[in-house]
Amino acid sequence: MTLLLYYWSFDLVSAGLLLTLSLLYGSISGWRWQSGWRLYVAGLFLLTLVQFSPLHRLGMNCSMSAHMISHMLLLLVIAPLLVLGLPRQRVGRAGILMNRMSAFFQCAPWLGWLIGLGTMWFWHIPAVYAASVAHAGAGIVPICTLAGPSTDWRVNLVHLAHPISLMLGGICFVWPVLGPQPERRIFPLTGVLYLFTACVGCSLLGMLITFAPAGSFHAYAVDQSYYAMLSMLPAGWQLDPSVDQQMAGLLMWVPGCLVYLTGALWLFMTWLTSELEVDKVAPVHLR
């Protein structure tokens, strides 16, 4: 475990992504901290962890479950945090863009659903999945790279597209539910349905991965780096590849789904207990 904790990595493109997101916040908010900034920063912090921490290495080199955890984080935690953390008062072009986006998803919330779920399904097609973890296999990659684990730019491109698309897909997905313009969000009860159907879609995928024959996702080149990484895990964590795949599927199926359901419940409860607009009209006294 202690050994594993040393395996931080760093790549310039992820750093660039973080920087862009930070600048975006600044330009939208007019370079002021606005309420909710903590959520945004938490999102950025988690994104940093997902991209640079040992979890990333683990997911890249030997553990599908670890890879799945980063997927879930990107899609279901980081994206909502970023969206929720967006500033209330928006200025400038980026601000207008935000409002346009809200207007767009107000018209077609199902598109957000489709993008979110589509992205997730896409990255779990076995061939695509294999591409997303492929690397040059030159041992455990060095600490600092320009854009990814390989010298082949195509491989690196996939590596870049992978987290970015998952995060953007997640953002599109949560926009109709948590978007920065509350009046343009979908009706909370519809939101419950929106999240529930998403949970069904996510369960289906999880189920497929869980019950797919072992080896359907045999992406990891079983080489030196694989074993080296594996040996760093504490005893009891060294999952057999078939169990690893099952675990990954179940992570998506059960905890993933619980995130959606918690979201649905939260949406419902805040709606039910929020002030009702009709009440702001003076109460009519009976008789």
Binding site: L204, M207, L208, F211, A212, P213
Partner: peptide
């Protein structure tokens, strides 16, 4: 239909 489809997938795609 999802249930029927899952059955189909189970029988034709699994294990190969």
């Amino acid at each position: 239909f999802l249930a029927l489809l899952m059955a189909f997938v189970y029988f034709t795609y699994v294990p190969v």
